[in-house]
Design a protein around this nucleic acid. Structure first.
Lengths: 115, 115
DNA sequence: TATATATTTGCACCATGGTGCATTTATGCA
DNA sequence: TGCATAAATGCACCATGGTGCAAATATATA
């Protein structure tokens, strides 16, 4: 098990507020699920067609997700194809879980969780 | 590997916007790190003493974290001891990571991550 | 160049929410 | 009961940000 000071550095590294704020907005969470729901990239128009919000708003949400590295964008002619950065996201979540687990004394944790 | 429809249900289950919104606020992220940084519970006053915000604000932030299950509260005399629900949080993060991984075709994912 | 389509950006509106101060509530003790 | 301490709540202020519409930009094609 890592030391407590080490786990705190790890926590600070992976608990990026901007990323969680990006994922914490319902419309953006819906976008993420749409992107995860089908293989391959999707255009802004395709995504907007499946949500009850304006295309321009979808474009802005995708920019937010791109800025925190949750999605990647690639222009293809007139369209821009957005793709979920699945590997990076999974990597972040697992590292954060590991960091938290390093911090929390397992015994107490299990007790608290009531299992 | 789970089917795509299954992974979407799992995603919807674990990608709770309220939880991520709670973690996406810098002051609350700081609270989480303080709670993870030392073993055992902390009182509102102790936590407020380590942050540049008013005690009342800390109290409110802790309520938000409690409402989404990130921390637990236990009154002990005049004090209220807040504790990180570490096990639940780790559980949620790992399940979310698994759901995402089930959705994303691994080959494409690895390519995107540039590894 | 002119036109059409896809996306982004400027703008204004408005809801949400983070903040501090003052007050209230909860608890323990004399 | 009265007083002191810890925490929560009411309130007002203000910054942030989600939203739609219109205009601007990017790209392909005639």
């Amino acid at each position: 098990m890592k030391s407590r000071t080490t786990c705190c550095r790890e926590l600070e590294r992976w608990l990026e507020p901007a990323t969680f704020k990006a994922l914490g907005e319902p419309s953006r969470a819906a976008l993420l699920m749409l992107l995860a729901g089908t293989p391959g990239p999707r255009t802004v128009g395709e995504l907007a067609a499946e949500l009850p919000i304006d295309l321009s708003v979808v474009s802005r949400h995708l920019k937010v997700l791109k800025d925190v590295g949750v999605v990647t964008a690639e222009r293809s002619g007139k369209e821009v194809r957005y793709r979920l950065a699945c590997g990076d996201l999974v990597h972040m979540l697992r590292n954060l879980a590991d960091a938290l687990e390093s911090c929390c004394p397992t015994g107490i944790t299990e007790l608290e969780a009531g299992r």
